[in-house]
Design a binder for these strands. Structure first.
Lengths: 153, 153
DNA sequence: GACTGTATGTCAGAATTCTGACATGAGTCA
DNA sequence: TGACTCATGTCAGAATTCTGACATACAGTC
């Protein structure tokens, strides 16, 4: 029975979870002084790169449900970091855009997060970094093949 | 969905989050029919490999706070999957152990999770798998160096 | 022995995220 | 046109996890 047991410490899945957890903790640590969470930052970063993304787009990009992203967007609107039109220009999707304030907030957060990523990648050669990239992409692709994209509801 | 500036998508940190999120989603999908969550499964797996781990040990191993692990352990005790002595044999740590029922539940879950991990690793050569292992370990080590182990309180 | 630092288990409350459900808009096809 | 499918935004409630705080236990130091 326990012959085929997954050895957690030697499991790539476990290590993936550990690495992701460590990265998230490190990001939270540097974002906390800015009163930002990781999802918070991810949302702003996505918007800076692709202005006009919808709530659902942002949810997929930040790996949360669109309901969670919606409450975050409401907070960001109250905060003055983003804006959404009162009415949808087409269909039901409301394009979200950064305000100048949101852009300033993002600049601070981005600098902090860059330092974390740099720390994570230090000690890795460019070759190893591209290995990491390729390997992680392969994992995502394999896992996505039999799965619904972002099933909910 | 235009894609001019893709900085996030080319970030190893983002890809790490994506891979971890995909893995978690895939695990949740196969564990749901068994009425188990990922943390649930992680706890049982850890206990199978190291019987007698404490609540805090399990929390660290499952990457949650010891408060969260505590509520999970209470549920598992009610469920009859694990047991804890009423009094600590030494110090304050209460060693947790799997019951036969917990072991059976774990067997089912373990089989399901193995299939997910196999799917994730398919298409990767043994060389690539060991690359992934080494690279992820390096990331964890770099991130941990300036961080508290499991700071809380 | 007394003190300090660290780690544990636990309680209480808050914050975050999720599941379920509904109505709306767009695209497809007969 | 009408039926069907799919995606979106949103509301409501539940579940999960976290933060803050407290008392206890052990190891080390003075």
């Amino acid at each position: 029975m326990s012959q085929d047991r997954i050895q957690l410490e030697s499991s790539v899945g476990y290590l993936l979870k550990e690495a992701s957890s460590s990265l998230r903790a490190a990001m939270e640590a540097v974002l906390r002084p800015l009163d930002m969470t990781v999802t918070h930052y991810s949302c702003l970063e996505l918007l800076a790169q692709r202005p006009g993304l919808s709530n659902s787009d942002l949810a997929r990009g930040a790996f949360v449900t669109r309901q969670s992203m919606n409450v975050l967007l409401h907070a960001l609107e109250r905060d003055g970091s983003v804006t959404r039109p009162a009415q949808a220009p087409a269909g039901r999707t409301l394009p979200v855009t950064l305000t100048p304030l949101g852009r300033r907030r993002l600049e601070q957060a981005s600098a902090a997060v860059r330092s974390v990523e740099a720390r994570m990648l230090r000690g890795m050669t460019p070759q190893e970094q591209s290995d990491a990239f390729r390997v992680l992409q392969g994992m995502v692709r394999s896992l996505r093949e039999n799965d619904v994209p972002n099933g909910q509801g």
